[in-house]
Amino acid sequence: MTWTLLLVLTVVTVASRVLPMALLPTPRGRAAEILEALPAPLFASLAALPLVGDGDAPALPVLLAAIGALLGATRRSLALTLACGIAGFVVGEVLVG
């Protein structure tokens, strides 16, 4: 690992953030409709990502945290979702021992 490589990786990461934010046009028509519908499935997919991990089934505490979060999410409150999810995780940890 060299300082040059670190700087190149920095440029790649920062450019991947800055370029779309600076250059993407305001979406119109069908693209705007799809983008409008994107957040819910995007965050659902990103939630599933660490659940699946490297292909193994999730551990019981993680599974109970997800179930707790889903129950809390029905009230559409982020704070309640977090509280229910963490409670589920704690219950799972206790059950697993």
Partner: peptide, 26 residues
């Protein structure tokens, strides 16, 4: 690690504005 899972579930729920959104998220 699990906080991120919970957070994304919450964000997905908060950004659902219709039954269709819920179906697409699921």
């Amino acid at each position: 690690s699990v906080v991120f899972v919970i957070l994304f579930i919450g964000l997905s729920a908060l950004t659902c504005r219709s039954v269709g959104d819920v179906g697409r998220a699921a």
